[in-house]
């Protein structure tokens, strides 16, 4: 518990910065909806968007989404929240595995009477709690920002579904980064490979949106596992939910085993 407490304390400062960013993103983003809807009257925005190349819409998470509706508009904001959550989880995952080696403090913590797996486990748990906190705060800010708009629409289900998606996909990329960090020869490479895997997933997501039938590509595009229109319709794809959970568990188990066998030394 002492390691967990310390790790949570260490993570707190960065967590607060992310939460502050999240607050600005969600509130500033959602406030724009009133302006967008009120000034243009809604339908003309769709005409405007239809003239924008599909690739640009895909990059901004707007492909196939009707942003004149509150749910559609929220899904775009939630897409950005998801991206933030994944980038944050990559940072957390790399730090959980490699920070002590990079800072050369590993000779302190790993010569204490606890197993390597336990130390890693506490660090991973602390990072994971930060992801939980990020998700919860994103949902709280979403509720508050939607309530501030004063519309009659009930967005509760969509906000919860997006909360689940942010948590599941952030956890998946967290596990990916931990996997990369434990299998890389150089400790600092974990962050790099984690970020590259996110970039690859993002590009694959765009490719998926560009293709009319991108079912096969969807399997390697985690950002598209849970599509905006399905979530707006109140559906969470069960198959991809299981895929994410299984992948996360398998990557974590493998990473812990690998970490146990790794030599601990500064490069």
């Amino acid at each position: 518990m002492n390691i967990l407490k310390r790790e949570c304390k260490v993570n707190l400062k960065v967590f607060l910065f992310w939460i502050l960013g999240l607050l600005v993103l969600i509130f500033a983003g959602m406030t724009k909806y009133t302006g967008l809807y009120g000034v243009t009257g809604g339908t003309s925005i769709n005409d405007l968007l239809s003239q924008i190349p599909k690739v640009v819409l895909a990059v901004f998470g707007m492909a196939g989404v009707d942003i004149t509706t509150l749910a559609g508009y929220y899904s775009v904001i939630a897409f950005y929240v998801l991206i933030c959550g994944i980038i944050y989880s990559v940072h957390l995952g790399a730090n959980a595995v490699s920070r002590e080696v990079i800072d050369k403090t590993y000779e302190f913590i790993f010569t204490k009477p606890c197993s390597k797996k336990y130390v890693l486990g506490m660090k991973v748990l602390a990072g994971w709690l930060a992801i939980v906190g990020f998700t919860v705060m994103s949902m709280v800010f979403s509720y508050a920002s939607v309530a501030a708009l004063g519309t009659e629409e009930n967005m509760n289900k969509l906000i919860i579904l997006y909360g689940i998606v942010v948590f599941i996909l952030s956890s998946l990329f967290y596990a990916f980064t931990i996997f990369f960090a434990t299998t890389s020869k150089k400790a600092e490479k974990g962050m790099l490979y984690g970020n590259l895997s996110f970039l690859l997933a993002f590009i694959m997501g765009i490719v998926h949106d560009m293709l009319d039938n991108g079912t096969a590509i969807k399997w390697i595009s985690p950002l598209k596992y849970f599509e905006a229109n399905d979530l707006i319709a109140g559906k969470l794809d069960g198959v991809f939910l299981i895929v994410c959970l299984c992948l996360t568990v398998v990557l974590m188990v493998f990473s812990f085993e690998r970490f146990q066998q790794n030599d601990l030394q500064a490069s």
């Binding site: 260490v10 800072d103 403090t105 000779e107 010569t111 009477p113 606890c114 197993s115």
Partner: peptide, 19 residues
């Protein structure tokens, strides 16, 4: 028996790096 051993060991590394 790493954990058992480490309860009985005090270690001072050549280069000291702490938080």
């Amino acid at each position: 028996d790493r954990e058992k051993i480490l309860t009985e060991v005090g270690y001072l590394p050549s280069e000291v790096f702490y938080y």
